[in-house]
Structure formats: structure tokens, C-alpha cells
């Protein structure tokens, strides 16, 4: 099954997907922004500032999801030694860093009109900063540690620490008294957001997912070409 994921086999499909996304992305973006900034109503309590949610929440969701995927890939790579999974992680980590930074910074901007402070060291915010740091260490490890086994071990350990942190991020608003509000949408399916806000939120989530796919595939294509170029130099 893993042979299906061989870079050479995927190259043509990747190129086709990149071109398709590049030609349609603006359509997704304009639709998302129209819903987020124009169509969706202001909140009865937070007024217009609630519109920050449409970039803050998808970024936070994606930063958590990407780390979960990276953890699974790291552990599979540690067990089965599949080099392609290391490349997947190398391409995913910068996207995760971008979205975790986006979640932290937009959250901080949202905090000022809502809480009256740009930053508080509460559990949710601190654990998100820690996730950002983990992404950063991940990237540094993959870039600068040339010994494969050592890099693999460090990444696996980081992944395990990261999984604990993911649970802390998820449940921090329930375990401790935090300024951050509890989840409005839970994994069990409890939703306390009105559909007029839920639809723009999911449209913006799709925009973020499509953007992530584009960056991931472009980075993966670069890695394939790098590998092929290295092989060519060996001849």
C-alpha cells in the first residue's frame, strides 16, 4: 500500500491538484470573506468583534489537527521506517506553525475588546504558545539534524509531549478557570452556535483547508524535485 505513496507516482497528480487549487482558490476566498465580513450577523454580546472568530477558530482547529496527523506519521515512521512520512512531516510542520501563530495572534487581538487585555497567561493561551514552540522545534530538528535515527527519535518524543499538550489545550477551559470561553462546538456534536454564524465558520474552515493543501502539495513537490536532483548529481 505504501508504494502507492511513492513520490514519482504522485508527482503528476500533485501537479494537477496544485494547478486546480491555484485557479479556484480566489473563488473560495471571496465566498468565505463575504460570509464572514458581510452576511454573518453581529453577536448580541460581542457585537462585530465576533467576526475575528472566522479566522481565529479555523486556524486553531487546523493547528491542532495538523499536529495530530504529524504525531501519527512520526510514530508510524518510528515503527515502520517509511521515509516518505518524514517528508510529509517536513511539509506539514510550517503550516502548523503558521496556523498556531495565527490562532495566538488573532486571539490576542480578539482578547483586547473582549477581555480588556491583549494577553493573559491562562491555561488555554499558554498551551497554545507551547504548541507553537513544539512546531518550531519540529522544524529545526527536521532541517538541521542530519542523522536520521536521532531526528526520528527527537520527533517521536516531541510528538508524545505534543499529544499531552493537545489534551491540555482541548480540556484546559474545563479543568481550570480561564478567561477563554468553553468550546461552542464539541467532538460529541453539541453545537451552541447559531447557523447564521456556523455556516460562515465552516466556509472559512474549508478556505483554510484548501490553502493548507496547496502549501503542503507545493512543499511536497519541492521535496520530490530536491530528491531527484540529488540523485542526478550522484550519477
Amino acid at each position: 500500500m505504501f508504494k502507492f505513496f511513492s513520490p514519482s507516482k504522485l508527482f503528476k497528480i500533485i501537479d494537477w491538484i496544485i494547478n486546480s487549487i491555484q485557479s479556484t482558490f480566489f473563488l473560495f476566498l471571496i465566498t468565505g470573506l463575504t460570509f464572514a465580513l458581510v452576511i454573518s450577523p453581529p453577536d448580541y454580546l460581542q457585537s462585530e468583534s465576533v467576526r475575528i472568530m472566522y479566522v481565529h477558530v479555523p486556524a486553531a482547529w487546523l493547528s491542532l489537527s495538523i499536529f495530530s496527523v504529524m504525531t501519527i506519521l512520526s510514530l508510524l515512521n518510528y515503527i515502520f521506517k517509511i521515509k516518505n512520512f518524514k517528508i510529509f512531516n517536513k511539509c506539514l510542520a510550517p503550516i502548523g506553525l503558521l496556523f498556531s501563530a495565527t490562532a495566538v495572534i488573532t486571539g490576542s487581538i480578539w482578547g483586547k475588546p473582549t477581555w480588556g487585555a491583549w494577553w493573559v497567561w491562562d491555561a488555554r493561551l499558554t498551551s497554545m504558545i507551547f504548541l507553537m514552540l513544539l512546531y518550531l522545534i519540529f522544524i529545526i530538528t527536521l532541517k538541521f539534524i542530519k542523522k536520521d535515527n536521532l531526528a526520528l527519535m527527537i520527533i517521536s518524543i516531541l510528538s508524545l509531549i505534543g499529544v499531552v499538550n493537545l489534551f491540555i489545550i482541548k480540556y484546559s477551559v474545563e479543568w481550570w478557570n480561564t478567561l477563554h470561553q468553553p468550546a461552542s462546538i464539541t467532538l460529541k456534536g453539541d453545537i451552541s452556535v447559531h447557523s447564521s454564524m456556523l455556516i460562515p465558520l465552516f466556509i472559512m474552515l474549508i478556505v483554510f483547508i484548501v490553502y493548507s493543501a496547496l502549501i503542503f502539495l507545493m512543499k511536497y513537490k519541492t521535496e520530490i524535485i530536491k530528491m531527484k536532483k540529488k540523485n542526478l548529481n550522484r550519477l
Binding site: L37, S47, E48, S49, R51, I52, T106, I109, K112, P113
Partner: peptide, 12 residues
Amino acid sequence: MNGYGIYIWLSY
């Protein structure tokens, strides 16, 4: 944006 423009446009 009802006085919240600076925060919203800064985020976006």
C-alpha cells in the same frame, strides 16, 4: 464595524 474595525481588520 461598530467601533471594532481596528481589531477586525488587524486580524484579517
